[in-house]
Structure formats: structure tokens, C-alpha cells
């Protein structure tokens, strides 16, 4: 019993200091009143911050945009991850390690560096426009950066490995004789994929979707640096409220609302993970 306590103590301490305490502080700020001083709030028992979220369509719009962009990102990741994961799962075991390492390689460079690289490629004076104009294919630069497309490219690039890894694990477990049985019974490869591979790996696909969707819903850096100025995702709005408007109670209320909203997919993910 004492041993168990000793083992669990650091974990509980960690949770207390880095999860419970910040959440408590956040909750307290969300319920505080805005104040022009330092810090910019006065502890109180006010629901004004939350009332603001409901009253102003701007915040509801920010949530909906974030959910839409996160769902699109997760969907694109899934579409790209399936063929990648199948390729890796079917590769020779020694090559599999190399392919997985290549998949993780971008994570070894800084996140901002990768976003910066995309900006360098996509901006008006960037590599792609330079090449297109240099070859005489276009006269004027194509506006690529600061579009929703650029934002999605950045997001998909950042989150793709989260989708590939669970699919890879599920495809590796998939019995290859199932596909042979499907072929034997008259299914062409595409039909066998739709009728056998896809349903058999559906739980992993759902997990992959949520693993991308959950962090993407709160993403703020990529929309800020690569997205159009009108793309007011909740993460971005939250940042603006904290650092530009200095309305901490509204910002904290936004953070709490986002957390509650994401608890639904997180719970879904846990149930999928718990399945045998």
C-alpha cells in the first residue's frame, strides 16, 4: 500500500500542479470580472464572460469555424494516411522501420520552422510562384498564402503522423488472408479494400480522425501564420482576447468552453481505445 502510494505520488503531484491548478485558475478567471488594472481581472462570481460567448455570434462562429476546419483537416489526414499506412504495413519489415522514421522525421525540426518553410514556398515571392513565373506559366503571383487552402496544407502536414500511426497499427494486425479470401470470392482489390480493409480498420480510422481533430480544433499558430485574416478560429479568437483585448474573463470562458466541447470527442476516443 505504501509502495503504491510512493509510485503514484509523482503522478498525482504532476496532475495537481500542471492540470488541476491551471484549470482552477482558468475557471476562477472565467468567473472573474474584467478590470483595467494589473492583472486585468478582479476575482468575483460573475458569469459575464460566459454570457458574452452566448450573446455574441462572433464566438459561436469561431467555434463552428474551428470545428469545420478541424473536421476537414482530420478528413484530409485520413484520406492521405490510408494509402501511406497501407504502403508502410505492406513493406518489408526492415524497410518498415525506415519508412516510419521518415514519417516522424518532420517532428525532429521545430514546428515553427516547418510553418516557416511552408510560408517560404507559398508566399507571393515564394519558391512556387517564382518557379511558375520563371517558366512563364503565370504572369502574376498566384495568391496561395493566407488562404484557407494554405491553412489546411499547414494543418494536414502538422498532424498527418497522428493519423498514420493508428492506421498502420491496425493494418499490420489485419490478417492478409482476409484479402485473399475476398479476392478468391470475386472481389477486385478496390472492392476488397471497401468491403474488408475499411470496415475491419474502422475503429482505428475513427481513432485517427479524433487524434487529429482534437488538437486541430484548438490550433492557433497555423491559422494565424498561414490562414486568411477572416478565418477566426476559436484558438485564434482566444489569443486575441487574452493578448490584444486583454479581456481575460472572456478568454478564459472561451478556453473552458472549448475544453468542455472537446471532452465529447476525447471520451469517444477513450471508448474506442477501450474496445477489444
Amino acid at each position: 500500500m505504501r509502495n503504491r502510494l510512493a509510485v503514484l505520488l509523482p503522478a498525482w503531484a504532476w496532475l495537481l500542479i500542471f492540470v488541476a491548478a491551471p484549470a482552477g485558475i482558468l475557471g476562477a478567471i472565467a468567473l472573474a470580472e474584467a478590470d483595467p488594472g494589473v492583472p486585468p481581472f478582479r476575482l468575483a462570481w460573475s458569469t459575464a464572460g460566459f454570457a458574452m460567448l452566448v450573446a455574441d455570434d462572433y464566438y459561436l462562429g469561431a467555434f463552428l469555424t474551428a470545428l469545420r476546419v478541424a473536421a476537414t483537416t482530420a478528413g484530409l489526414c485520413l484520406a492521405i494516411a490510408y494509402p501511406m499506412a497501407m504502403g508502410i504495413a505492406r513493406a518489408r519489415p526492415d524497410r518498415r522501420v525506415l519508412l516510419l522514421a521518415l514519417l516522424m522525421l518532420p517532428f525532429w525540426t521545430g514546428f515553427l520552422l516547418r510553418v516557416g518553410a511552408w510560408i517560404g514556398l507559398l508566399r507571393d515571392e515564394g519558391w512556387i510562384n517564382g518557379l511558375l513565373q520563371g517558366l512563364g506559366i503565370t504572369d502574376a503571383p498566384l495568391p496561395m498564402l493566407y488562404t484557407e487552402g494554405a491553412m489546411l496544407v499547414g494543418m494536414v502536414h502538422a498532424y498527418l503522423p497522428f493519423a498514420v500511426l493508428p492506421l498502420f497499427a491496425a493494418l499490420l494486425r489485419l490478417d492478409p488472408t482476409l484479402l485473399e479470401a475476398a479476392a478468391d470470392l470475386g472481389a477486385r482489390p478496390a472492392i476488397a479494400f471497401l468491403t474488408v480493409t475499411l470496415p475491419a480498420t474502422a475503429p482505428a480510422a475513427a481513432a485517427a480522425f479524433l487524434l487529429v481533430f482534437i488538437p486541430a480544433a484548438g490550433e492557433f499558430v497555423i491559422p494565424e501564420l498561414m490562414g486568411p485574416s477572416e478565418a477566426n478560429l476559436v484558438g485564434r479568437v482566444l489569443w486575441q482576447e487574452f493578448f490584444q483585448n486583454r479581456d481575460w474573463p472572456v478568454a478564459a470562458a472561451l478556453a473552458v468552453a472549448l475544453l468542455v466541447l472537446l471532452l465529447v470527442p476525447i471520451r469517444l476516443f477513450q471508448r474506442l481505445e477501450a474496445r477489444p
Binding site: D175, L178, E180, D184
Partner: peptide, 20 residues
Amino acid sequence: TPPWARPVNMMFQSYALFPH
């Protein structure tokens, strides 16, 4: 001829039933 176009069927040792 690919397997899906052959009038031949197989019973697999592991049975290979579709679990879903």
C-alpha cells in the same frame, strides 16, 4: 488470370472469415 476472375474457390486453413 487474377484470383477474382477464376472459377475456383478456396477454403483457407485459418478459415479467413470476415470478422465484421
